[in-house]
Simulated assay, not measured.
Amino acid sequence: MLQTLLQMIGNTMQSPQKGLQDALRVAPARSELWWLLALVAVVNVIMSEIASRIVLTHNTDVEMMFTIPALYMAAGVFAGLVVTAICTHFVGRAFGGTGDFDASLGAVIWLQFVLMPLQLAQLIVLIVSPGLGVLIGFAGGLFGVWLYVNFLAVVHGFTSLGLIFAGLLVSVFGILFSLSLVLSIVAVLFGVEIRNA
C-alpha cells in the first residue's frame, strides 16, 4: 500500500496531469475524502510545528506571530483546504469547467500528499541549514502552484493556459479572502491573540 502510494506520488511529480487522473480513478467516496482531508490537515500542522521549533532553536530572536493552539491550527488548515476545494470547483465551473466537486476535493487532497515528501525534506534540511530549508520551502511553493495549475486542467478539462491562470488568480483571491474571515472568526471565538511581528 505504502509502496503504491509513493509510486503514485513520484509519477505525479513527473507527470502531474496523468498522476492526478490515476489518483482520482482510485479515489474513495466523498465521505472518506473528508477524513483524508482532515488527515492531511493534521499532518500539515505537525510539520509546521516541527519546522517552527527548528527555526526557533536556531534563532531565539524570532517570535511566533500566532499564539494559536495546535487544535485550532488544524481546524484552520482544514477550513482552508475546504475553501480551496470549493473555490477550485465553483471558480472552475464559472470559467466553463466541467469538473464535479468530488474531483476538486480529491485534487486538493492529492496535492497535499504529493507535497509531503518536499515538506519532509525541508524539515531535514532545516536542522542542518535553516537558510537552505527556507529556499526549499519557496521552491516547494512554486512547485505546488505548477501542480495546482495542472490539476485544474484535469479537473475541469481546461486546455488553455490563459484560462487556467485566470481561474488560478480568482481562486487565490477567493481563498485569501475566505481565510482572512476564518482567522478573524477563530480570533473572536477563542480569544486568540494575533501579535504583530
Rank of each mutant, 00 (worst) to 15 (best):
Q3R: 10
L5F: 06
L6S: 11
Q7N: 09
G10V: 13
N11R: 13
G19K: 07
L20W: 05
R25T: 09
A27K: 05
P28L: 08
P28T: 12
E32P: 02
L33H: 08
W35C: 04
L36D: 07
V42Y: 00
I46W: 13
M47I: 14
A51N: 11
S52K: 06
S52F: 03
V62H: 00
M65W: 02
F66M: 09
A70E: 14
G76H: 14
V77W: 02
F78K: 13
V82T: 04
A85W: 07
I86Q: 02
R93N: 07
F95W: 12
G99V: 05
S104G: 11
S104A: 15
L105N: 05
I109R: 05
L111W: 13
Q112H: 10
P117Y: 05
A121P: 09
A121L: 15
A121E: 02
I124W: 04
V128N: 03
V128A: 15
L135N: 03
F138L: 15
A139G: 10
A139Y: 04
G141H: 04
W146M: 06
Y148G: 00
V149C: 06
N150A: 02
V154P: 06
V154Y: 03
V155K: 03
G162V: 09
G167V: 12
V170Y: 08
S171W: 00
V172L: 10
S178K: 01
L179H: 02
L179N: 12
I185F: 12
A187E: 15
L189V: 12
F190E: 12
F190H: 14
V192E: 14
E193D: 12
I194A: 10
R195P: 02
N196Q: 08
A197Y: 14
